[in-house]
């Protein structure tokens, strides 16, 4: 009978990851208790842990989580459909691509969240403003990676399709698009991250909606432990979307 080496054990990566976080939290707890770090800047991890129950019962964090997740989902759907469609359009039209690609790349680096007053004027102080800022900020990586993925399709795969007399539309849907999917998903995932950052940022700035608003309220009350606990829920939204996008990619590719 052969035994599998420890390094190949399935449980090891997850255990190491969780263990690493636990060790970092323990070190932070120790550093704060030893007064190497000010507890007025960084709360004790144990206080953060204790405040989870409080924000669930008193701050209605679950409905705020759902509000942020809903806005993120709406923005993600818009980013995926519009971003991929615009990417395909730029890929298909060389002149348009040469005219726009640098501008789109520039947009990816722009702090779009600062345009929130403009969005407030256009859409009002409501969830639509938040979704639209999330959508616009997540769009550039989805467009750029779609262009990159579609352009990177190996010529020989397209030649195979042409040798089977595929029409241009069949070539796109049966070869170019599935071949580009892994790169497109990198762009959609990047777009999702940009969207979520901006969604929470705008919720914070306009004091409206889900977790961003809660973080704002807790910060104003200087309830740092609860604020960090609320930030953990923002991370949870991100993790949920990341897992969902990975599962969707696997399903689409298979």
């Amino acid at each position: 009978m052969t035994t599998r080496p420890l390094a190949e054990a399935k449980w090891l990566p997850a255990t190491l990851g969780l263990g690493g976080i636990a060790v970092a939290l323990l070190l932070a707890e120790l550093a704060i208790r030893m007064e190497w770090l000010s507890r007025f800047i960084v709360p004790l991890p144990s206080d953060v842990l204790m405040s989870f129950e409080r924000i669930i019962l008193e701050e209605d964090v679950l409905s705020r989580f759902l509000a942020t997740a809903g806005e993120a989902l709406a923005a993600a759907l818009l980013v995926s459909f519009v971003g991929v469609a615009l990417g395909a359009l730029l890929h298909g039209n060389r002149l348009l691509r040469r005219a726009c690609e640098s501008w789109v790349a520039g947009l990816a680096a722009a702090p779009l969240v600062l345009l929130y007053p403009l969005f407030l004027v256009i859409f009002g102080r409501n969830a639509l403003t938040i979704v639209m800022i999330g959508f616009v900020s997540g769009l550039p990586p989805a467009i750029l990676k779609t262009v990159e993925g579609l352009s990177g399709t190996r010529k020989v795969l397209l030649d195979v399709g042409r040798s089977f007399s595929l029409s241009p539309s069949q070539l796109f849907w049966k070869i170019r698009f599935p071949s580009a999917l892994p790169v497109i998903f990198v762009g959609v995932r990047l777009g999702l991250m940009f969207s979520l950052i901006n969604i929470v940022g705008v919720e914070f700035l306009i004091n409206f909606g889900g977790l961003g608003q809660l973080v704002n309220e807790l910060a104003e009350r200087y309830d740092l432990a609860a604020m960090y606990a609320a930030i953990c829920f923002v991370i949870l939204v991100s993790i949920c979307f990341f897992i969902a996008s990975e599962k969707l990619e696997r399903w689409l590719v298979s």
Binding site: V156, L157, D159, V160, R162, F164, S165, S254
Partner: peptide, 27 residues
């Protein structure tokens, strides 16, 4: 132009990586 009467096998690796072996042949 390309025609089903002529089947082409290329020098470069040309299987579709997103399809299984059976799905490649079924293409």
């Amino acid at each position: 132009g390309p025609d089903p009467a002529i089947g082409m096998v290329f020098q470069e690796e040309s299987t579709f990586p997103w399809r299984t072996v059976a799905d490649n042949v079924a293409f």
